[in-house]
Amino acid sequence: MNMAGSIEEFVDELGGFAETAERTLSAIEKDQDGAKGMFSVFSDRMFAIKGTARQLGLPHVARIAELAEEIAVKGTHAGTRAVVRKCTGCLWDALTTIKVLLVNRDKETTEEQEILVNRMKKTLDALGGGRERVSTDDIAALLKNR
């Protein structure tokens, strides 16, 4: 299958991912104390979108999905309803943007996307920042020194 075909198929698959993610966010909004564990479902879907978008050469989609994944991880450990609300608000925007970007994947990065990315980065920083990442070289060193 060529790249265009793979992207088409991925966009179709995303329909299911987005549906699950939307249901999850709605459930969390209805029960902010009891359902915050469901952020992990959202995080898993964003992780899948991130990996596939990277692989298919859609880095702008992958970047938003990665930030959304990290914010969802923070949401799982949220100590207050204010944090839960902050996370869900940000994640709705991220999900909406990812859907728009996939449908209009040939269009250039817009100012709105940059605003969203900056907002997500600020939210993530306010929640303590993302997890420590490793590069390919770091992984090679870790494997060598095992």
Partner: peptide
């Protein structure tokens, strides 16, 4: 073969005996 590049998780995989670890995109 994964997009997971969080350090603690990579270390977990190495400890569990992974032969190699490739981060997407590949």
């Amino acid at each position: 073969v994964t997009a997971e590049d969080a350090k603690d998780l990579v270390i977990q995989a190495i400890k569990a005996g992974v032969d190699d670890y490739v981060v997407k995109p590949v």
